[in-house]
Each structure stands twice: as C-alpha cells, then as structure tokens.
Design a protein around this nucleic acid. Sequence first.
RNA 1: GCCGGUGUGGCGGAACAGGUAGACGCCCGGGACUUAAAAUCCCGUGGGACUAACGUCCCGUGCCGGUUCGAUCCCGGCCACCGGCACCA
Length: 806
Amino acid sequence: MRYDNFAEIEHKWQAKWLMEKPYAAVTGDARPKFYALVEFPYPSAQGLHVGHPRPYTGMDIISRKRRKEGFNVLFPMGWDAFGLPTENYAIKHKIHPAIVTAENVKQFRKQLQMLGFGFDWDREVDTTDPHFYKWTQWIFLQMFKNGLAYRAEMPVNWCTSCKCVLANEEVVDGVCERCSSEVVRKNKSQWMLKITAYAQRLLDDLADVDYIDRVRAQQTNWIGRSEGMEVDFATTEGDTLRVFTTRPDTLFGATYMVVSPEHGLLEKWMPSLANAEEVREYQSQAAKKSDFERTEMAKDKTGVRLQGVSAINPVTGEEIPIFISDYVLITYGTGAIMAVPGHDERDWAFAKKFGLPIVEVIAGGNVDEAAYTNTDTGVVINSGFLDGLSVEDAKVRVGQWLEEKGLGEKRVNFKLRDWVFSRQRYWGEPIPIVLCEKCGHVALPESELPLLLPEVENYETTDTGESPLAAMTEWISTTCPQCGGPAKRETDTMPQWAGSSWYYLRYLDPKNAEALVGKPAMDYWHQVDWYNGGMEHTTLHLLYSRFWHKFLYDIGVVPTKEPYAKRTSHGMILAEDGEKMSKSRGNVVNPNDIVDEFGADTFRLYIMFMGDFEKAAPWSSQAVKGCKRFLDRVWNLMETKVPGDESFSPEHEVLLHQTIKKVGEDIDSLKFNTAIAALMTLTNTFSETKPSRGDIKVFLSLLSPFAPHIAEELWEIQGFAGTAMGTPWPQYDSAKLVASELEIAVQVGGKLRATVVIPLDAAEAEVLEIVRQNEKMQRNLEGMEIAKIIYVKNKLMNLILRPAGN
RNA sequence: GCCGGUGUGGCGGAACAGGUAGACGCCCGGGACUUAAAAUCCCGUGGGACUAACGUCCCGUGCCGGUUCGAUCCCGGCCACCGGCACCA
C-alpha cells in the first residue's frame, strides 16, 4: 500500500498538537533550556513561498531533536509586519494596513501550521500590535535619554514627480520605481541612532559568540576598524585641512589632496577660487547622484582642481594641489584625504588621469607601472628622516614626529555609520517625541506609551516630503511634557528594522503588560542559543539587534552582552531554472501545491534533502517524488503491527548504530541532506531483510524530527508507548558501530589495484599476508619486491614496488 | 574595482581530519507484473579501450603547475559563474 491517506493523517496530528500543545515552552522548568530562533517573516499578501520553510524546517528538526534529548525548548514564531509592501497595498486598494496585515498573518499562520512546525503558538508576537510596539517606543526613549538618538541632516531619495521620499529599494537605476521619473538627493533632518558608539564592542564581542565564519567575516568587514592617524595640512588660505590616513609612513609621497564635494572648507575658499563656477557645478552634479550612482564603481575618476588654494605637505614643505572629487566620501574619516599615488591604487589612477606627480616612497615596486601596495617587505625611501625604515617602523617614527609638532594624532576609524532611523511613512511605529518651541525635542512620558498610530485619510507621503501623519493636525498638536506649552508631535515613523531589533526578547514573556520582559523569564531564558537566518541580514538586522541588545544590557534590562550565542545561515531556494524565484519571473513554487499533492512530510523531507542547507539549491518538481517514494516504502514496511520485543535484529544492528550516530551528528551540523540519505539507506536494507519491532521503533524515533506526522501515525499503529516525538533520542553503542570484518583498499604506488577483506583492527603483518594471498596482487607482485609499505589501519595498504633482485 | 562564496556524472548532490571519487535521490535504459497504461518491484547507469564471456586496463573532481607513497581536499598561478558592496584613504 502506498501512503496515500497522508492528508487525513496530517490533519489528525496537527489538530491534536494544537489542542495538546506538546511544543509549549515552560518558563522556569527544571530541564535545561534551549532557545531556537528563526527570522520571523514579513507577512506579505503573496503568502508563504517555498523559500520560507527551509530555515524553519531546519530549526524545527533541531528543536525536535533537542526536545527528545531532554531540553525545555523555546521555538517561537511571529510577524515582522510593519513595512512598505503592506503600505503600498493599502494605498492602492484603500484598505487600512492593519486590516491587510491581519489577513496576511492569518494566511501565513495557516500555512505554517499546515507544515507541522513545532512552534509555541501561545508566544506569537506581531510588531504592529500596540502591546508590542509600546516597548519598541520605550527602547527608543531610553536611547534618546542616553544620548544615542539624535537629529542630523541626511540625504533622502526624492522623486521629483511623486513628490515623495523613496527607500533605496524603490530607486531602480536612478529613477523612481513607480513613475520612472528622476530621483534626486534632498537633505532632510532625520533621527539617527548612534550605533558607532558601540562599534568597538560590536567587533570585540564577536570573539564571545559562535557565528559561522562567513557571518563573522562580513560583520567584521562591515564594522571596518582601521588604525591610522589624523594629520593636519596647512593651506595657503591659512586654514588647517585635516585628513585621516592609515599610511602616515607615506607622507613624503603625498603629492596632492582630495576633499569630498560636501567638505565644509569649500564654502570658505569659494571667493578665492578662480574656478568657483566649475567647483559649484561639480558639487551640484555630485549632489544629484543617488547613493547608488555615486558609489557605483566608476571606472573613470572625476574631479576638479581648486585653482587658488593649495596645501602644504608638512614634511616636505612643498605646496601641493587640492582637488574635489566624489570618490572621497564626507561620511568616512574627515571627508578629505592626502593622496599618495605611488602606493594607493585609486590615487594612482587619479594621478595618471590628471597628470600629477607620482613619487616612490616605498621601494620594491615600479610606480610608473602601478601603485605598489605591499606593506610587508617594503623599505621607505625618498623620505628624509624615515629613509631605510620598514613600513611598520616608519609609521611609529612619523607618528611621534607629528605628535611632537602637534600636527597629528593617532586615531581609530570605523566604516560603520550611524543608523538613519526616520521614515516619512505611515506604517511604522510613531516616534514618541514632541517638539516644543521652548524646550526643543522632548521625550513623551513613558506613561503615555504606546503612542498609537492615528487613523489617517491617506497613507501617502505629503507633497513636502513629510510623513502622512503630518496631515493630522489634531493629532500633531499637543502640549510639551516638560513646560506644558504648545508642542508638536514627531510625524516620522520608525523603520522596519526597529521591531526586529528586539523581537526575540518579547517571545520570552509576550503578554507582559508591565515590562518588556519579566524578570523570571529573562533570568531563565537569558539568550538565544541558536539563531538561523539569511546571509542578507548579516550586516543590517543582525548588527542592529546586537547593538540594541548591548544597549539594553548597559541599562540593565538584559543579563547578557550578546543576544545570540550561535548564528548559522541557510542558502536560497532557486527556481527550477536556477534563477531567483520572483513574482515577476512567474517561477514561484507555492508550498500549498506541494502539500496538496504529496503531503507536508514529503515537502519537509524534500526541502531538507534537496541539497546542502547552507548553499543555494534549485527546486526540482521531479525530485520531490523521490521523497514521497521513500515515505511510501516506509509506510509499506510498517503499516501493520510487527510483533516481538523491542530489541534490534542481528542483521541490522550495526547499520542501526551507524545510522543513529550519523543522523544525530548530521542534524547538529546542519547536514540534513545526508541524514535523510542515511535513513533512506536503512529503509533500503529493511526492504531486503524485514525490520524487527525494535528496528522500527528506533527508525521512527529518528524519522520523527523530519517527518513528524507519519512517524506519530506509525508509532501509534505499532502500539509503542507514548509518542515518537516524546521518546528520548536513541543512543548508539560505539562498540557496535563496526562489523568484525571489513574491506580495505590495496594500492601499488598510490593506485588502486585490489580490495581485500580483513579482520577489524588487523595488524600490518596480518594484512600483508592477506594481500600476498590475493590473486590480483600476486600478479602485481610478480618479479617485484616491496620497497615500502604504507598501512593505514582499517583503511588501506599502499605498496611501493621495485624490480626484484637489483 | 573591492569583499565573500562556488566549480565533482545527463541533473541535485556525497566523500570524517590528505587514504577505494560519485553515497542518497532524480532522470534515463532493460526486465517482471498487467489486455494495456499508470503505480510498484528487480537489474543497469562517469567516459573510453580490449574481451565470446568472467573480466582487464586507461582517463576522470574548472584549467596549468607544485608538495606527497597517495590530492576533490594542501600550496602557487589562472579561468568561469554566483552573491554582497558604503570607491573606506
């Protein structure tokens, strides 16, 4: 019989699980705790897509194994529901985003339950729920009070036709995604969060967490710490032009300087510039460029030389030209650089283009051909008192010299920038701040939280680029909490990243009205043990939430410095054609179709079996069948009760122990594909020699994390005690992992020539004797003598031969 | 341009830590069952040469070289593809 009544069986168990709540996490339980987390989804109108369940299934399998190992597991789910698509849908269909969200959430929840995930549904959170965002606002207020939230002028993308602020995502090829009109950069005063204050700690504490290498590397590079010096250059206008450099050792080679188009000194110099017009034109061109264009990897360097102002190289005393160019960014360092074309590739390219002198100050390369950037072996030349020093020594020496003269100081710089926290949008958390004419920006009292989103007529940004909330005159007008005078509410809202920066904490105590998390829950769970999520969230979400967590640690809300003890990542599921699945390409696979045709267990097995969990893998509608056939075979073998005791059959004993070991280790290292392959291998041998009752029991116990419905059904049919999911994870006996005899390879000069069967752990002499008896080897050995034997126990014997008798 | 990753049969992918390359699955071919088909079960399945056959040998993990008794794995140099990017001084 095939396993064709899967729909009925899966519904039966899902209904039972909803009733009996076997996945409920118990705060304060005596068992050791294990908090498994997956990134909560954005509930879009399209519903669940086959990409979502891949990480959920992976962590579900791990959670189920941990439960069987005796852990009190917390595996929660929720909704990251604020955001653009819902807002755009609301604008288009004139439906309140809250209603759209509720419908989408309902659909997502139903689909997730259909897949049999062991989420604790009593802990569901929703970032758009005022009971939740009350605490998002609360955290913002604490940051404001601690000086981590501040106002700054920042450029935004402005669509000249829609007259609204666009997210980077809405700017496609420099034009508005919706109307294809020109997008320009416009400065706007915005709320910023000072993540840079935590840069060093975000970097240092990576040492204390278990993140996979590529996540750690990406975070490290994003934070981008570099040690160098700030050096002051005098100018012919009598100012000081300060630069940051990591290579003060090359100071003698600095033949020109470059400032960013936004540099503050430019305005002051303007009257002295012979080509002020040209400079202004360059500035306005640079300002027009979107972030995307400006950072696009221009092959050609552009720039304008300032005519009438130059700088003095402090060590050579030479006058050197100053340029303005957009390859220098105002947001990094001091917004100005000293250019050393001999030893920096970008400076070299720029110098070649503008015909500037290139001076070699580190020996070892040929600066006429290319910049020489090797710092390890180079020796300093053409550099006065630095001549003959290594790069490293020269850095120290010139540093001392600059410090003595008061011309420079040591400085650590980070690439990491502060976080622009304002959005001119409706569907986000209102920022709980009022602007008082007398007192300035004032925090709302905590007693007034949550500050609810008001009902508005229109969800679109206003013509002036303000949030839709700006049109709510009644809501805006308020009184200052500090002086009681007239004041206005902040009308910007928070970005989608806000709620997701702390949601994992709310799962610990989701219904607490008095605190973000109550003390008992915080003390018991304290940290996520294992967080799996996409690589695309490595630099933004993951870093933002680490930042918020550290802040909460500093103000005594959480007991740990880091939110996640362990972070792993999964690969994307691609469409059958190897391309990304997307609605526009029309290649999206809907999980509902697969579940209808094959069942949830087959679906779960396939997305885990399809390839390496950590790498991208294309969908195959053909290959799904293989997993269904596997379950058919399992069903066929076990659908009638097998009598007997619960011991292993002698024929399968070794393989069973091997499989227990393999499946267990593979789950813990995310190798779900090979774990399933091992279960398939076991099933194949069961087809040859029927499994005993004991064999079946262990098999179902191993299968249950992957395919929980069929495992429970067969468990019930066999009449085993309890449930498959509740039965302890099987243990293997190391002594029984290997048979008494095994086959090893015999090589001659490293090439396979034969295989022989030897007793386990046989000694070299014994194996050699067996090899000499082997017919094939006798042919190989004829007329030869053995010069050398390499024997690897239980693996192979490699013989090095030479002609006999010489 | 920079950073990160990946290249293994017709396909998805295995191969602990340098030790029998291709587990497991898909596709495909042959057979059994069937009036027939589907489903199922059994057998075969990296390429090539030789053999009536049992078999035997050669080649083979993107390319070129190196280390080693032995390399998909380590080292050097290329090529291709994928992903990310904030030209980071």
